[in-house]
């Protein structure tokens, strides 16, 4: 990780000095190793650039605003982030010509909340050693297996291949894509009432902070329907249990077929709601009904909901699958 970070920094410095780009978007250091934030850099503040196991944030969405500005920007994208990038290109939300993409190696990112749930409190700093994560805390040094505290999105990684880049840093890790739909299938196998109870329990935690929407690279509308007072659904609190469902169903629906499963929604949810399970259900359904499709894999293929065939299945046929 240290090595990759050094390379990335050198690359940024090189491109900035050569004038290929006039700024860089990456991650800046925090006070503890887990609190690095996205930030833009020039040569002045490049010393604060970091790339660690806590750089889970997807930088693609920032490019919507950044690529409108003057000059070219260098962006570091992890393999999963490149899917969001492609999707945004397909939707004409970012200007490709203003962006220099450096694909950066990723071996899975760590979720600080999982670390805490593991009983590791007071984390001051972390470092990786092989498969282990060694945490320096106010209550002494603790060690965990990295795989136990990885972000949900990394546990179900789509693969470590960058689908778009101008240049690569680090080696392209070869990894078989993991099964993403295990939990969805488990839920499908439950009865309606069990599923309802599961979601009721999860969604009732929602505080409507809108973090999932605001971080989502697919939620790139200038004015969201939930911010439109005329839409009559713009309540800011889940005043009734209905509203939390309305919000999450509609939000998932609006990104259906465009969601690359980057997992940011689940990462940012302060209440730990497994929002990826809603998005993945749409992905799984569309794969099963209309053939395999991965949003963001390229910038050409039409999304399933933007296309049709004469012989598509009928709406009531979805329950003919196994389960229920």
């Amino acid at each position: 990780m240290q090595e990759i970070m050094k390379q990335a920094k050198l690359k940024a410095e090189e491109l900035l000095t050569k004038g290929v780009v006039n700024r860089v978007i990456g991650w800046t250091e925090g006070d503890f190793s887990y609190d690095c934030s996205p930030a833009t850099f020039t040569l002045d503040n490049l010393d604060k650039f970091v790339y660690t196991e806590f750089c889970g944030a997807n930088l693609s969405k920032y490019l919507i605003e950044e690529s409108k500005k003057e000059g070219k920007i260098l962006v570091f994208l992890k393999p999963c982030d490149t899917y969001s990038f492609n999707q945004l290109i397909q939707e004409h939300r970012i200007k490709r010509e203003n962006i220099y993409v450096v694909g950066i190696e990723c071996r899975g990112k760590v979720d600080i909340d999982k670390l805490r749930a593991f009983g590791i409190d007071g984390v001051l700093g972390c470092k990786t050693e092989g498969d282990k994560l060694i945490c320096d805390t106010i209550y002494g040094e603790k060690t965990v297996d990295k795989v136990d505290v990885m972000l949900e999105k990394c546990l179900s990684c789509k693969g470590k291949k960058h689908v778009v880049y101008d240049e690569l840093i680090g080696e392209e890790v070869v990894e078989e894509p993991k099964d993403r739909f295990g939990m969805v299938a488990q839920l499908e196998a439950m009865t309606e009432d069990e599923r309802y109870k599961f979601w009721q329990n999860e969604l009732s935690k929602c505080i409507r902070c809108n973090a999932c929407r605001n971080v989502c690279p697919a939620c790139s509308c200038v004015h969201c329907v939930f911010d439109n007072p005329d839409s009559n659904i713009a309540s800011k609190a889940n005043t009734d249990r209905f509203e939390e469902k309305l919000y999450h169903i509609i939000r998932a629906w609006h990104v259906a077929g465009r969601c690359t499963d980057c997992g940011e929604c689940s990462r940012v949810c302060p209440q730990g709601i497994p929002l990826h399970l809603i998005n993945r259900k749409f992905i799984k359904d569309m794969n099963e009904f209309y053939g395999e499709y991965q949003a963001g894999e390229d910038t050409e293929t039409k999304a399933p909901l933007n296309s049709y065939t004469f012989g598509d299945r009928e709406p009531h046929e979805f329950d003919t699958k196994e389960g229920k």
């Binding site: 833009t40 505080i207 409507r208 302060p270």
Partner: peptide
């Protein structure tokens, strides 16, 4: 404020 998403997490917690 550069990285701020404009969500309400900080205010709601």
């Amino acid at each position: 404020s550069e990285a701020c998403l404009g969500c309400g997490t900080c205010t709601f917690v």
